[in-house]
Design a binder for these strands. Structure first.
Lengths: 326, 326
DNA sequence: ATAGGCTGAGAGAACGTTTTCTCTACCCGA
DNA sequence: TCGGGTAGAGAAAACGTTCTCTCAGCCTAT
């Protein structure tokens, strides 16, 4: 039988309510407090969080649901969110949907059942469209991918501007035949694609955007097709994220091409290994820490001001020039 | 006010107990069952997990605590554990200690408070030594790093044999001056180091093992020192894990060396990008899926047979030969 | 036909906390 | 000195479920 608050109370010769007050740090006679603290130590008492949550009616827990844990960007964000939430005395329940709308719905349901304080969500394509009509008891902050309809608070990268930044870099390196590879499954892909096309137009270049599905084999096939024929091969590539980049590199490797001699590469997302490939990959690094911090802060803000108008925070990324653009 | 089981009962004109039985899938009159199901749908009822856990006295939750979420090996394991646990109807609470013994102790405490069914733990150095005397109400399965004292169930890689496999490969490639880089902080590092030294001895070679701390700057300095002087430079390196490998590659890059011309590299852990560096890195791939599956299975087994003798499952890795050994 | 067993439904206790309510004791000002 | 206000302690209710216990009704076997 595990030790409960009543056992502690008995040992300390006080009431259970007093033990509760000591544990919550409320005003208690110092002598009693000492007795309670001693009793807690002596009995090895650990509060039962289920009981605490049930009675107090708040879970002090936030949910974090990401669409693809294999994407290191999301693991980095998760790490930050966990740290920042902890600073605020909040626990984090973490879930991964693998870009599966059904899993996403299930996890949102689960968060509901856990009675979480709020949720930070990197939604699937389906989730973005349906989040407005999904009614939950907790506030949701969207990260990385957000509809522009303002149904939720959100924090996103300035995708259009960052895509343009990559175009500008490639242009400055002398490239003119620049192809953009963007995901089919996310609004992020849409925004980056739009930014790319606008920037290309600004430079008087004709844009050539290719939409690449998330599924790996398919992605590799498409990229291989794109690069196989030397006469049609673009001079430079803009890749929409770190996962897609792997497919691109596999295709390039399989075709025996060299970066940047045969083709220039730039990409979104920065990872430690990217400085070792293709003479160092030139990339947009996302402000991971800031994203996590802002997301948690917005969530807490929303809890205090439930009816405040929704906000959308747009963060700039950092361009890192290395050698892959020639 | 949120809707509870009593509200559903009222709508369905049955008792709360019957609603509970329907939800738990127990035998109930079909007509009643239909009424309850309809009422649940109509009211949008979501069970309160805190209340359920409090009353039923089991959380259906396992804890997963890893020492370093930045290590992709652990994120891969986490993904698998989550999936497999889900198949068994178990939720997973995920935590990351960043190799910090204090955080580890805190999270173990937290798991206690959550009344988890069991914990899967990749312990810090300190945790390995103290896990025996840390008494918890739940069983613990150690992964990746486990003391050999049999205090807990554990599932680990056959570290010694795998290190020997790398030595054999390098030897076959003609290398004789093979240096091993192993972590200071883990028993895993110890085991791999021992396997390396034994294999070197078997080949009649003199071993040169260097212990590298987890801290990045320090690691980089040590590796740079090791490789800077051409006359003392080893011909080949065995690197103990994917995180350390990044420090090694940074040092190699900074010194302007080329793999495998100036130095051969082999490592533990396989990640997607490794085929693109140094002509493809030859590595030991860990059986991530199997590790996750075995860990969960052992945990469930232990719950059924609390007093069974502890087991240690040792899994083989897969050697992947690419070009980095010359 | 009737006793005995079995199935399934409802009433109410129980899970381990926090919170509300009540009461005592003390302090301060008049 | 006395009254009013306040601080802090204990008793008991409450949180939303599941579980235990009781009992009704039905089926089967003798």
């Amino acid at each position: 039988m595990s030790v409960g608050i009543k056992d502690v109370a008995r040992v300390a010769a006080v009431s259970p309510a007093t033990v509760s007050r000591v544990l919550a740090g409320r005003a208690v006679d110092p002598a009693m407090r000492d007795r309670v603290v001693a009793a807690v130590r002596e009995t090895g008492y650990r509060p039962n969080l289920a009981a605490r949550r049930l009675r107090s009616r708040h879970s002090n827990t936030i949910g974090l649901i990401v669409a693809d844990i294999r994407n290191p960007f999301f693991t980095a964000v998760a790490r930050m969110v966990e740290g920042i939430a902890y600073e605020h005395g909040l626990r984090v329940i973490f879930s991964n949907t693998d870009e599966d709308a059904a899993k996403e719905a299930m996890y949102l349901q689960l968060m509901q059942e856990e009675r979480v304080t709020g949720v930070i969500l990197a939604p699937t394509r389906h989730g973005v469209d349906n989040i407005a009509q999904y009614q939950s008891d907790f506030p949701i902050v969207l990260i990385d991918r957000a509809a522009s309809d303002g149904a939720c608070d959100s924090v996103v990268l300035d995708n259009g501007a960052m895509a343009a930044r990559l175009v500008a870099h490639l242009h400055a390196c002398g490239h003119r035949r620049i192809t953009g590879l963007f995901g089919t499954a996310t609004v992020t892909g849409n925004e980056r694609c739009a930014g790319y096309e606008r920037a290309m137009a600004d430079f008087g270049l004709s844009a050539h955007a290719v939409r690449v599905p998330h599924e790996r084999a398919e992605a590799e096939r498409i990229v291989t097709d794109l690069l196989a024929d030397e006469s049609r091969r673009p001079g430079a590539l803009i890749v929409s994220n770190g996962v897609m980049l792997l497919s691109v590199l596999r295709a390039i490797n399989a075709l025996g091409l060299t970066i940047p001699r045969d083709i220039a590469i730039t990409s979104f997302d920065n990872e430690p290994w990217m400085e070792f490939v293709g003479g160092g990959l030139s990339v947009i690094e996302q402000p991971v820490e800031e994203i996590g911090r802002v997301a948690v802060t917005m969530l807490l803000d929303r809890l205090d001001h439930a009816d405040q108008v929704t906000r959308r925070v747009v963060l700039a990324g950092r361009f890192i020039a290395r050698g892959s653009a020639g």
